[in-house]
């Protein structure tokens, strides 16, 4: 039984289940990530040093430049990408990058998604409807 359903704007990509990595900070693949090692590399980022690989990455807003539009696909191709991206506010670059990479993306939620979801939540993400279902809390992270 799910703990809670959170509604967002219909997004991009296929349904996916996974474990959340969340913070009330913003996101740019070029500005924030060490894409070779799959960790956040900007010292001032709330997720500095943490691995995002295979996670449902939950952050506030898309920031920074245009490079993310290419980078998400390269990250997915090397098996070093997140499994979905949930943002309060995407921008065109995130949408373009998600479409190019086939990476599930939802934004514009009914509540602050970085407060609703916590790292360790197991969720099901359904971009076609904009739904995120919380399936389980406090999952032990792999």
């Amino acid at each position: 039984m799910s703990l809670r359903l959170v509604k967002g704007h219909p997004g991009i990509g296929d349904d996916v289940e996974g474990v959340v990595l969340a913070a009330a900070d913003n996101f740019s693949a070029r500005y924030d990530l060490d894409r070779i090692n799959g960790v956040f590399s900007r010292p001032s980022h709330a997720l500095y040093g943490q691995s995002y690989v295979g996670r449902i990455l939950v952050l506030n807003a898309a920031k920074g430049g245009v490079a993310t539009a290419w980078m998400l696909r390269e990250m997915q191709a090397r098996g070093l990408g997140p499994s979905a991206l949930l943002l309060n506010f995407a921008n065109p670059i995130m949408a373009q990058g998600a479409a190019f990479a086939g990476l599930p993306l939802i934004d514009r939620f009914e509540a602050d998604i970085t407060a609703v979801l916590k790292s360790g939540d197991r969720v099901r993400v359904s971009p076609s409807t904009g739904d995120v279902l919380i399936l389980d809390r406090d999952v032990v992270e792999p």
Binding site: A69, W70, E74, A77
Partner: peptide, 15 residues
């Protein structure tokens, strides 16, 4: 068009 290879990576260049 922005298409430098740091952003493209091998995957983007192949595309």
């Amino acid at each position: 068009l922005m298409a430098d290879t740091e952003a493209l990576g091998e995957e983007g260049v192949r595309f």
